[in-house]
Nucleic acid binder design. Sequence first.
DNA 1: TTGAACTGACTAACGCTGTTAAGTTAACAT
DNA 2: ATGTTAACTTAACAGCGTTAGTCAGTTCAA
Lengths: 231, 231
Amino acid sequence: MPRPTTPLLSKPGIRAAALEIIDQDGLDGLSMRKLAAALTVSAPALYFHYPTKEQLLDDVASEIMEKVDTGAFALGWREGLLGWARSYRAALAEHPNIVPFLARGPGQRDASLRRADAIHGGLVAAGWPAREATMIGASTKYLVVGAAMGSFSRGFVDDVQVYLDRYPALGDAHRLREHADAVDRDSFEFALSMFVDGLAARLTRISPSAEAGARSAPPVPATGASPRVPR
Amino acid sequence: MPRPTTPLLSKPGIRAAALEIIDQDGLDGLSMRKLAAALTVSAPALYFHYPTKEQLLDDVASEIMEKVDTGAFALGWREGLLGWARSYRAALAEHPNIVPFLARGPGQRDASLRRADAIHGGLVAAGWPAREATMIGASTKYLVVGAAMGSFSRGFVDDVQVYLDRYPALGDAHRLREHADAVDRDSFEFALSMFVDGLAARLTRISPSAEAGARSAPPVPATGASPRVPR
DNA sequence: TTGAACTGACTAACGCTGTTAAGTTAACAT
DNA sequence: ATGTTAACTTAACAGCGTTAGTCAGTTCAA
């Protein structure tokens, strides 16, 4: 079958199939041959549409990141940060297997820069110094990526009775596995709250005029408020 | 050369060589053949000492994690948490290439459990409810792993002039690359401070008796203070 | 209407990977 | 002296990402 009358493959189709395999079999479970087989096609056919496996993964990652929303910065830095962090984490939690790739991921993509700009602009407009705005953005990403990756709870095994008396402070850590997801979600929300609380306290300390977390005061264009100093 | 008079290989030697390759060439740069070549040995010889590549990596990861210190919990939960987080991050920053592996890593190892026990016990002894102690431990790990992995700053490319005017709020983000490491370190410290500040405020709120961050009051064995309730 | 150029697939193959099997001999225990 | 174990060797397998070369169907210009 040299050239079909109607194309068998399309970039979105390849992406969807790849993501499906990743979700089911993990990141290592995706191979070009397996992906091709799922599309009832030979492996090299994929290279007509994607020059490399990494490029394909980049595209899949970008697709996932499209669900990240920075719009809430219009309601104030606190709302913006919370909205961004939550939508970010939700996007990653939907496809946890791709997170290790996404973490080193591009970030230099256009959409990614647009998000970074919205975040930084929103923070600066609310009264945060540019340098701290950068650190807040980084910190929040740490939290989201760490939560998506680490999965603290999954570090415990549930078939071990041993450490129940060996490490009494762990109590019944073996039950963690059961509600691992819940613990992860709660821990993320907890960390986010503590972090934002600390931020709010700091903002009133360094810039008492700014209402901590409320709408940014003047209707000045958000992006214009960023001074051109190294951060 | 069937059996050498004195063994050519040893587990510590294999581990050291593996880590050296990982540090230089990245996690993907480590192959059993390359490792064997570095040790002037054939690849299958390694399998006499390590049953699998994953086991080898587990051991290397554990070796790195040995530098993580939870001793400061004797000085109070705040000092303990900060000391743990900083030594944890420092250990990962020394070998950033192995972090992606370490993040999914074992965690169920003996040493890992001992650390978890010390952390949880130290927090509970200072007045934190067990459930929140768990979340604090998880949150801190999120921060450390996220900081070690994400490398927010590395997400920017420095050869692009384009977005200077396209995304004005980003200012001169292209300079980020230069002091990427400094930004990472500062952002981590910033995040840690904000998080711990938020925690301290919460602790005085929920348990006013506990001095927020000071030494845990009575010299009671830390591990004995953990009630046996699900967390 | 013919012919060239392009498109979207194919099969074969390269060098790489982790790992297993089988062979070889030094060292050690009985 | 003999048998077992230890520590290596080479050969090989299946699977990986990717490249080269082939070929039929589609599109468009002359």
